[in-house]
Simulated scan of single mutants.
Amino acid sequence: MPPRKVVTGRSQEPRRRYAEELRRLRVARGLSLRELADLVGWDASLFGKLETGSSLGGPEVAEALDQFYGTPGLLLAMWEMALGDPTQFKEKYRRYIALEAEASSLWHFGVSVLPGLLQTEAYAYEVLALGGAKGKELEQQVAARTGRRVLLSGDNAPPFRAIIAEAVLRTPLRDAAAWREQLDYLLEVSEHPNITLQVLPSRAGLHGLVGTDVMFLRLPNGVTVAYAENAHRGELIEENAAVERLQRAYDAMRDEALSPAESRKFILRMLEEVPCDPSP
């Protein structure tokens, strides 16, 4: 098959194409970023990040720009395509991200950090910075990770279960306010009908996934794959027997975990222990 002919000469990557289209529409109106911000109602710095591709923003921004530019549904559709664009992730994660986007259900165990789908921007920033990312690369990685959270929202969001080791909730961010925001976010999402959070208490002892974070993805064809990760490497596991061994370990931990209601109470206790900012 001959290669697809490029007609416009513009980027074929959804994320970059979205950024290019936003800039093209603004320039065609003869507007500066500040003038656009005044007219649409968001900060000029956000529109700058959108046009450089360092942020995708949210669907509400795309919808507002669609209305402003008279392009009903176009920018929102481009935003959705950019959100699922695997090229925004490192090569080794791209196949996993593509599978995650089509999964019919997901379940996760976190022994070291919170699952990426539940991380606030500040949490993602600190975790990714520890991996060596910095500057624009770090901003892009944070935007890519937090942008994935939209996967768990909406009427057609897949069911998601996360078992979180107690040690994860006892390892705060350096900034107390940011840690409070993260714990508040966990409590918020735990009320969503498609999200189940459970805490694995330390008293449960050693278990089959010690030292390993793992995400299971049930695909539309009924096949389940797993992505296992430790401090040094990650691996997509598709071989049935290997996935089943991990699932048995996961099921054994779920039996030892606190109930969702008890887990909410545990997170609330962690929140109460976070020092408040002193009054001025």
Rank of each mutant, 00 (worst) to 15 (best):
E273C: 10
P278H: 09
E272S: 13
Q141H: 04
T52P: 05
S105C: 06
A176K: 13
G73I: 02
D175H: 11
A64D: 09
F68G: 03
D251T: 11
I97D: 04
R17T: 00
E91L: 14
S112M: 14
E238P: 08
D38Y: 04
L83C: 14
R233Y: 06
F47G: 12
L169S: 03
K5R: 15
F68R: 07
E256R: 15
R174K: 12
F109P: 05
L56Y: 06
E126L: 07
L76I: 06
L36E: 08
P115S: 08
L246S: 02
I164R: 05
G205F: 06
A178V: 00
E51Q: 14
M215S: 13
R180G: 14
E100P: 02
S153Q: 15
W79R: 07
E188G: 03
S104Y: 01
G131K: 13
D251Y: 05
S32C: 00
T146S: 07
R34K: 14
K90L: 10
A28W: 05
L36S: 03
L200A: 08
R233V: 12
S54Y: 00
A101C: 11
F47Y: 15
E13C: 01
L22H: 07
L56R: 14
T196E: 10
Q119N: 05
A241V: 09
V113A: 14
R34F: 03
Q140R: 15
P172W: 07
R245L: 10
A252Q: 13
G116E: 14
A144C: 03
E166S: 12
G131V: 00
G154C: 13
S54D: 15
E137W: 05
L209K: 01
R254G: 12
V223S: 07
S32P: 02
N230E: 02
L200E: 07
R148G: 03
A64S: 11
V6W: 02
A98H: 12
P59E: 15
A62W: 03
G41F: 07
A157I: 10
A226I: 02
R94P: 01
A129C: 00
F266Y: 14
S190V: 06
V223C: 03
L151R: 15
G234E: 07
G208I: 09
S263G: 04
V142H: 06
E100F: 01
L183Y: 02
A44R: 09
R218F: 00
R15M: 12
P220K: 03
S105K: 03
G147A: 08
Y96Q: 10
P278V: 10
V210A: 14
E238H: 09
V243T: 07
L271T: 08
D255A: 13
R170M: 11
F266H: 02
E63Q: 13
V113D: 11
